[in-house]
Nucleic acid binder design. Structure first.
Lengths: 229, 229
DNA sequence: TAATAAATCGCCCGAATGGGGTATTATAGA
DNA sequence: TCTATAATACCCCATTCGGGCGATTTATTA
């Protein structure tokens, strides 16, 4: 897809606020001839600044991005720099394993997700893989990813309708989501299901959290895409 | 989650119809002391049969499963054996990179997905990772996975190929409807399409009239149902 | 028993939405 | 030429939504 000349060094940048870790990583990556470290930054702002000041041929191909950073987060930084530098690949490099951050990272355009305890050799091969169109992902993280796509083990609930429940929505939530898909308002749903409008609202808020959306339209699209109804 | 005693060998089974490949794989895995190859099978049926006949302590922890098999496919075999042996981890081991098979594999409960050109060392570490709750996935495959979770990257120019016009929506309206489906707000859409928010609103009102709906959720549902996008 | 999850109900507030208008321009058809 | 339809932009206003808060009750399960 993008212009990646083989034989050229991979230009790498590190964004990491932890001094010792950053320096150590820099040192380790220095041993690899196939890499060229163009800069290291200790914050998202710094990273964006460096990018702006970079000559065209010094713009990194790949950025190893820490998530927890002072100032803007690595996720926010990724979001911003992706707007301008769409073809830089971002690998989130972090200690966090929670779904929220993983999901957000993907949303903003990260293409890899490695835990910081990944062996340096693997980090390096990840840098290469990402340039070849792959998405290196720590296995424990990959499992979460799979969880987001897979329909959790069916348990063909004896009663009637739906068995496949992506996002592990509770029965009550599914009932309400169906009404949302039908375009009903909270009040209408409340009447339909004999609940208070506030309860309906709470359920919907929880549904949004689980589905990682924040509007009815987005929820409907996702629900239909994944066959929740 | 499951009972996996550390220190014990990982019991592995291979299901692969290609003779040479299977034997070679068996041979290579044989060099690793931490593995115990409990059986190899050349079809899904054979695999299920072996499982049934296995002593409790000879049931594999992990199965390397080819997808294309004579008789039932690796996906079908996975589906079947997962019902009875839920805690066997299945790693799909295949040459296929297409989304369909990947998706189906995940649906039926595979926890890993490796391409056959994966280095033997990585196959072995994948076997371990899967026992530790990870999901080893070839990076090129992982990218597809990510694609399934991530928001569709907007192709600002939603041009061309829309020939079928389910309702008589004008091109401008369709462009905007697509954004609505992506869950964007009027303001966001306005910025995206370089129009004033009021214009966007007007369009949306007209869209509602034409589609006979009165909310974004309903419009999204209808649009998706009718393949307007 | 303690911790967790599900389901229920509630308040506040600012932003977004939907419905009712009006209006200008341009373009294509009758 | 007259008309109809896009496409564009704007106003008002009541309703709805979404995000933060918190709270109680009942199961389930560790």
């Amino acid at each position: 897809m993008e212009g990646k000349e083989l034989g050229e060094k991979i230009r790498v940048a590190i964004v990491e606020d932890h001094d010792i870790f950053r320096k150590r990583l820099k040192e380790l990556l220095g041993f690899y001839n196939e890499l060229e470290l163009v800069f290291t930054a200790d914050s998202g702002e710094m990273c964006l600044k460096y990018l702006n000041e970079s000559e065209q041929d010094k713009i990194p191909n790949v950025i190893l991005m820490d998530i927890e950073l002072p100032g803007i987060s690595g996720i926010e930084a990724t979001f911003q720099l992706k707007e301008k530098y769409a073809d830089i690949d971002i690998i989130m490099f972090t200690v966090f394993e929670d779904d929220e951050r993983l999901f957000e990272s993907i949303q903003v355009g990260a293409t890899g997700y490695l835990l910081k305890d990944t062996a340096i050799d693997e980090v390096v091969s990840s840098l290469k893989e990402v340039r070849e169109g792959g998405s290196p992902i720590t296995p424990s993280i990959a499992r979460k990813l799979i969880g987001m796509v897979s329909k959790p083990v069916d348990e063909s609930t004896s009663n009637s309708d739906n068995d496949l429940v992506p996002f592990d929505l509770s029965p009550a939530e599914i009932r309400i989501l169906e009404q949302v898909i039908d375009g009903k308002t909270n009040k209408e749903i409340a009447e339909e299901v004999f609940l208070s409008p506030w309860t309906v609202k709470t359920h919907i808020k929880n549904i949004y959290k689980k589905m990682h959306v924040n509007s009815r339209a987005a929820a409907v699209r996702l629900a239909l895409k994944r066959d929740i109804v």
